[in-house]
Amino acid sequence: MNSPEIMQEDFSVHYTYTRSTGPVIGDFLTALRDKKQILGIKGSDGRTLVPPMEFDPITTEPLSEMVDVSDQGTVTSFCWVKNPIKHHHIQHPFAFATIRLDGADTDFIHMVDCGDEARISVGSRVKARWADERSGTMTDIVAFDVTGA
């Protein structure tokens, strides 16, 4: 029996709806776009949570006290993506990293674009590289650059 012909069709999975991002996530995304500023939020235990959470991770109470944090920080862990997949924003080897931004008490996940795995380590100092045209999304930060060991 001949193997049946397989229908091939490209299909793009995407969100077909829009929604308001609300006062917490909305403020965070707006600050990225308009002020090149990263915002955190004060949690019930006094920690600054970055990115800001709408609800306290311990008490589940709504949170509202937004605070500025730096766009510079320290790498706390990283993985090295040797062969980026189609959707990755950086199409040459790069790192996904957890970054403790100065002024924050939790880690922020983003990309570090440093060309070579040997140029990043836990403890590396990094700084956000901002997009020229920003639209209020996480990718308003293109990536983080390594500024020091």
């Binding site: 996530i25 995304l29 990115p51 997949i85 959707h87 996940i109 983003h110 999304t137 996480m138 990718t139």
Partner: peptide, 9 residues
């Protein structure tokens, strides 16, 4: 909002 746009696979 925070992770999916980065395509953190």
């Amino acid at each position: 909002y925070y992770l999916a746009p980065l395509w953190l696979d």
